[in-house]
């Protein structure tokens, strides 16, 4: 099935790079590097140049911290979305928010995707996605409240939980009027999960792909990589790319990333090995 993200359509054999652009002063990886709007705009220009098909704009960091109300969240993202929309008509604009009111405002400003990283915390978000005919990312958090860390969370079967919850969320969105070809599921590594959970999700990602819903993975520089390799933020690229390769092998479609070029190469290489993608240009031994 063709994937439709707002104004944009992608064939089944396409994989997509969704570049993270934070409008936050305190996100874990960039630590406010794109807090200033012009810096964030420069980041968009950079990732477009690097070949990203999508950007994911976030106004609130995922971890606990200063309370950001919806007025402030809108202040951070709405006009910025409008500015990107005007400058990059063919770029898919996603906004990372769980709030329906923010979702409504960014869709008015030109967003194509609502990335609900907190798994349906605001039940009205599906109605906003339907109203604007945009795509919705349905994530699994195990019921975690937005901006909380997991504490002694356990699952009978984390993959079963991720499949059941994300598919149920997608079905709920479908019933609310969101187009089937505009729904994506995301197991949400590290959200409501310890490292062992995220590793198992990675190892068994093929089970999520087998649901038939397109799968997004967000692995970039996360703690499960850091804890696996005992490496701090800033030294997790290689581990991230290894996890990326495993997810690509399983058939993930969208990759939410800090590093576009490296991830694109890994995903393309894996898909070429698997036979889902042709080599760019092969002549060696075939002359």
């Amino acid at each position: 099935m063709t994937l439709r993200l707002g104004r944009h359509e992608f064939d089944d054999d396409r994989t997509l790079m969704m570049a993270i652009v934070n409008r936050t002063p305190d996100s874990f990886y960039d630590k406010g590097a794109t807090w200033a709007e012009d810096k964030a705009f420069d980041r968009v220009a950079q990732v477009v140049d690097e070949g990203a098909e999508m950007v994911d704009i976030g106004g609130i960091k995922a971890a606990p911290g200063e309370e950001i109300d919806e007025v402030e969240e809108k202040r951070r993202v709405v006009d910025f979305v409008a500015r990107i929309r005007a400058a990059y008509p063919s770029l898919v604009i996603s906004v990372d928010t769980w709030r329906a009111s923010v979702g409504d405002a960014v869709c008015e400003a030109g967003a194509d995707v609502l990335n609900d990283a907190w798994g349906g915390a605001d039940p009205a978000l599906v109605d906003v996605a339907a109203k604007h005919d945009v795509a919705l990312i349905c994530t699994h958090t195990g019921g975690a409240v937005p901006r909380t860390r997991p504490y002694r969370v356990e699952y009978d079967d984390v993959v079963r939980s991720a499949i059941d919850d994300t598919v149920a969320y997608a079905e709920r969105a479908l019933a609310a009027g969101v187009a089937r070809e505009s729904l994506v599921i995301d197991p949400a590594h590290d959200f409501g999960k310890n490292t062992f959970h995220s590793l198992e999700i990675t190892r068994r990602l093929g089970e999520m792909v087998a649901t038939g819903w397109p799968v997004l993975v967000s692995l970039s520089n996360k703690d499960f990589v850091g804890e696996s390799l005992d490496l701090p933020v800033g030294e997790r690229l290689t581990g991230t790319l290894a996890a990326t390769a495993v997810c690509a092998l399983a058939g993930a479609r969208i990759y939410r990333v800090h590093e576009v070029v490296e991830t694109r190469q890994v995903v393309d290489m894996v898909n070429t090995i698997v036979g889902r993608r042709l080599p760019a240009r092969a002549i060696r031994g075939l002359q």
Binding site: L278, A280, R281, A282, I283, G285, L286, Q287
Partner: peptide, 16 residues
Amino acid sequence: GALALLPEYASQVDPV
């Protein structure tokens, strides 16, 4: 007899 002419050895960009 260039094998690059065979469909099983196709690339995204045709080298021949």
